[in-house]
Amino acid sequence: MLLLSLIISIAQTHHAAFRQNNLYLYNLNSLVEMSCIAVAYRIELKSSRNKAVIVAGYILYLLVFIYDFSWTHIAGIALGVQRIVMIVYALLYFHYILTNMQVQHLLIHAMFWVSAGAIVHAAGTLFVFLFVKVTLGDLSSNGSYSLYITIVTTFSAFFYIVLLVSFWLRRREFRLVDQMTV
């Protein structure tokens, strides 16, 4: 997900440098993010009910994405729905760890930080995309576009940093499991 998002970001910068339309890349980035997150939660959440909720959320997102996708505009509704589904996934995971009580040290548990990052990222950018015409619709130099896109980028950066930390924590968890099984 990080790699694909990086490629999309580079493409966005490249398009911007040549003054080409790069807004569709936000939409594609959302699809990449959502797909990777859905797969990660589907692997992590063991119960069939949770898995069904994840699949249903993803299908809902896909339908909205197909309906709302545009090559020239940011698909505000699709991105808004993505945020709502991400919040649902994170809450589902929090519920799962509270009911199963299998995690001994939550603060060094990778998926907890992924969920925390996801929920903060989604909560911080939800309204920006739901009201995309107000927030990102005015592209003039005096308009609000640059302010809101900075907010979105900041939250995305925060989420990706949290993801990187989670990768490191995940590696540590795997090492601990290996040590325990040897």
């Binding site: 919040i87 809450l91 929090f94 760890i97 509270l98 009580m101 995690v103 001994q104 939550l106 603060l107 907890f112 925390a116 929920i119 903060v120 989604a122 909560a123 911080g124 950018t125 939800l126 309204f127 920006v128 009201f131 107000v134 927030t135």
Partner: peptide, 28 residues
């Protein structure tokens, strides 16, 4: 409204994270 809504959502998100971390550790 968007700013207030976002702030409320963020506060709620942070509250949920802190609550989950605290409650889980307490349960453990």
């Amino acid at each position: 409204y968007i700013a207030v809504g976002t702030a409320v959502l963020l506060v709620m998100a942070i509250f949920i994270i802190v609550f989950v971390a605290y409650y889980q550790q307490k349960q453990i």
